[in-house]
Every structure is written in C-alpha cells, then in structure tokens.
Write a protein that binds this DNA or RNA. Structure first.
Length: 233
DNA sequence: TAGGGAACAACATTGAAGTA
DNA sequence: TACTTCAATGTTGTTCCCTA
C-alpha cells in the first residue's frame, strides 16, 4: 500500500550516479561522501605507484579536484570507483615519470642514513587494547609493507589492486591496460616473491596493510572541499 | 648468442548459483 | 541436500623479446 508521500532517500543509500548528480550541483555532503567512500582505495593505488605517503595524499587530492571539476565527463558507463581510480593512476604514473631521474639517488641517501631500506608506511595501527599486541601488529604490518615496497613496480601495482583492493582480474587489467592473463601472471609472481620474503604466519595481516582512515582521511576530505570552495566563481 | 624476465595459452581448481 | 554447471581465478609450461 502506498501512502503517496515522497520519501527522500538517505545520502548513504544513494548510488554512484545519484551522488554524482548531487555533486554536480555542488552538494557538499555528496562530495564529502564520495571522498569518504573512495579515499582508501585511491590512496592505496597512488601509494602503490609512488611509495611515498605524502605524495600519494597529494595524488588523492588532485584526483578529486580533477574529478569534481570535470564531473560532466562521468557518464556512468563505468563505476565511479573505476573512473576515479583511473584518474588517480594516471596522476600517480605521471608524477612517477617526472621524478624518475632522482628516485634512485634519494633511495640511496635514505639507505645510507638509516642503514636499511626506508620504512615508508607510518604505523597507524589501532592502539586500543593490549599495547604489546598493538606493537606486534604494527611490526608485522611494517614488515609486510616493506616487502610489498620491494616488489618490482608492475608486480606491486597489480598486487595492490588485486589482493589489497580486491578488484577483479578483469577490472585490474582494464585499469592498467593489460590482458587479464598478464594480470594473473604478475599477481602469481608477486605473491611468490612475497612468500619468499615473509613468514607464512604473516599472511593474515595482509588486509590491514596501507591503512587509510581517521585523521588522514578526514584531513584530505576537508582539504579538497576547501580547495573546491576557493575555485568557486 | 645465451640467459632471464615478461607475456601468452592451456589446463586445473574453486566456489557460487541453480536444480532435481 | 547432493549434484551439476559455469564463471572466475590460479598454476604452469611455452614462446617471445630484450640485454649483456
């Protein structure tokens, strides 16, 4: 039985197309929700390419700015996440190309200063509960992140998209412009390389790698909203 | 030219969905 | 509930290409 009263859907219940429609009308809540839904994935993708926390954050911000100022380009043929990931990936790869000549020197410097490969991912483990358990968890994640960092670029990007972001083979291949078979081969070899450098007992900690939540997520979301405000005519 | 790595192709495995 | 089917994914052998 219908009451005839129109019910306004909750923002959380809206699908991508509806959210984009609101975002086109500069609905701040919609913009914020889009970012909150995709921050972690975009950060992980950018981070997997650049291996730098700060630059990955920049890429995430730049991705949203590009996306939100070109929302007309989103026709809804692909998922919003796919569209955003493509932008983030292009931005990250572009930055990688620009900085390439200086990367090796910077890495050598870091190794010389610290005596070992630099640990890039800041531990942001949940600190509640047993401090020893939290410290152990942070250490395990640090080892995993370092092992992932040491993977060759093509393997690392595929590994992050497939095993951490849980994208399908097809979606990963589409994002990277590869054949699905190539994605499978790279993933298999990335896992083999990782297995060689990690104890098997660490495998359960994989899903906690590359955390992106809390203050960092909120900071980027607010920063993008502020910059969009500045761009308003 | 040999060796190593990447890509390709074929086959095996797994898990979800449908059906009796 | 057990069985079948099929799509997605994993594994492995082969081929190709680049580099020293």
């Amino acid at each position: 039985m219908q009451s005839g009263i129109a019910v306004t859907p909750r923002l959380d219940d809206l699908d991508d197309l509806a959210l984009v429609e609101r975002a086109r009308r500069h609905d701040g809540a919609a913009l914020r929700l889009i970012m909150e839904r995709h921050n972690r994935q975009l950060y992980r993708v950018a981070r997997s390419v650049l291996r730098e926390d700060a630059e990955a954050e920049d890429v995430v911000q730049e991705t949203y700015l590009r996306a939100f100022t070109h929302l007309d380009g989103f026709r809804g043929e692909a998922r919003l996440a796919t569209w955003l990931t493509r932008i983030a990936l292009n931005e990250a790869l572009e930055r990688l190309r620009k900085r390439r000549p200086s990367v090796e020197l910077k890495q050598i410097d870091a190794i010389n200063e610290q005596g070992e490969a630099r640990v890039i991912f800041l531990p942001t483990a949940r600190q509640e509960g047993d401090p020893e358990a939290a410290a152990a968890r942070a250490e395990i994640r640090r080892l995993i992140e370092r092992a992932i960092d040491q993977l060759p670029d093509p393997f690392r990007i595929v590994f992050v998209l497939r095993d951490i972001e849980e994208m399908s083979v097809e979606a990963t291949a589409c994002q990277l412009g590869l054949r699905p078979e190539t994605v499978k081969t790279r993933l298999h070899r990335a896992r083999r390389l990782l297995r060689r450098s990690l104890d098997r007992t660490l495998s359960n900690a994989l899903t906690d790698a590359f955390p992106f939540a809390g203050a960092r997520c909120a900071r980027i979301t607010q920063s993008v909203l502020d910059r969009l405000d500045e761009m308003k005519p």
